[in-house]
Design a protein around this nucleic acid. Sequence first.
DNA 1: ACCCGGATGGCAACAAGCTGCCAGCCCCGC
DNA 2: GCGGGGCTGGCAGCTTGTTGCCATCCGGGT
Lengths: 231, 231
Amino acid sequence: MTTAPITAAPPSVAGQVITLHGETELIARAGHLFEAKTEFICAAVDTSIWSMSITRDHALRRLATHRAAGVAVYKLYNPAAVAEPADLAHLARVAEFGAQVRICPSKLPHEAIIIDGRVAILAGPTVAGERDFSVVSVPGVVEGVRSLFMTTWQAATDLAEYLPASRPQVDEQGLTILRLLSAGQKDETAARQLGFSVRTYRRRVAELMDALGASSRFQAGVRARELGLRI
Amino acid sequence: MTTAPITAAPPSVAGQVITLHGETELIARAGHLFEAKTEFICAAVDTSIWSMSITRDHALRRLATHRAAGVAVYKLYNPAAVAEPADLAHLARVAEFGAQVRICPSKLPHEAIIIDGRVAILAGPTVAGERDFSVVSVPGVVEGVRSLFMTTWQAATDLAEYLPASRPQVDEQGLTILRLLSAGQKDETAARQLGFSVRTYRRRVAELMDALGASSRFQAGVRARELGLRI
DNA sequence: ACCCGGATGGCAACAAGCTGCCAGCCCCGC
DNA sequence: GCGGGGCTGGCAGCTTGTTGCCATCCGGGT
């Protein structure tokens, strides 16, 4: 499995790509690279990776150190990272400690770290409990990787949108009602479909309107979609 | 401006990173790499880059060749790529010729190409009319770059959503009405604000409902937001 | 066993929205 | 100058939605 060779001698090689096996080797051999001076970017699959050998409190303290040193920290997570209340609470604290946290609209299969725009560490898939890490410092490659990351970052949703205080609590039945409304169904039809009276259905819709902070059904529809509710 | 060195000797170097200067050199030295066998991925700033030395017809013929050969082609463009009708028309043809085309929700600053998951070509910024290209074939790096690309791809919008046939035409007045509806305003109030009668306002709302394909106002609100109308 | 609170459902008054009909106005073409 | 078409606005009948009120039921606690 080799790529066709580049013709003639390479004009320049501005750094090497190092492949390291396992997180222990990564930290031992390239751990010092994690000391960011200006910017620390991390695209993570979940909240435990990259901190599995240190406690969450330690991670938070490092964040505080970064903030004190003026290092901009960007952390991008998979949607699964906010599925559990404990993980969501942790991410809220990560944000409180100065990191910018966003949740990716789609699944990020592999992780990446970019430090000071100078080095990128790209994780491979997990094989036999370990992953290979590619450490690259070629400016063009690092910038290309950072460019793709920033594109994803722009499209991601700020963590604040996931915090309970800013987001209406809609239970499963509420989502079902929103789906029926979104499908254009009349109250009588939808109520029959759900197996309760139109009065109760209308009571529920009124509750949803309150939760969404809407004063008309059109506004409620816009709000429901804006909040990315699963309708 | 150098990165702190990796401690000890590198355990493995699975390929080099080659930096090429300018598109002419890129094509001359690494042009053969563009011959994809299974997959061709391209994240482009606009429709002209990567084809500035060949005509659009030539590009379309190459796409047909790719399709005939069973090569999956993914093309991701900036939002600006669909701003002009001529560009949009060209992209429609690109899609007709077999490429999957999506539009990124945010601005992609630099371009990237990934061929067969084996080599990545990352473009740098334009300086004095030329760009440097980093050609990398280290599996870990290529996979990491592809991973980030696919995350952005998942979040992008299919080109079909931008084609006029599938997208309701809403004029400026229509958008204003949608904004008032989105603000929760009653018909009488909104009509007065716009300076015409409530009958006319309701006539307009009915037309918008038709355009959005909605049978209720809630549904219309959801659709308006889904289409990303500026409301 | 009893009581109370919460939820449901039916009814009704009212509000908001939907749409047809028709008169009047304006503009354009002949 | 006239006629016709398109648009607007008023009115009205109807539909859909909003919300209050009250009777009934059910479950939980004492």
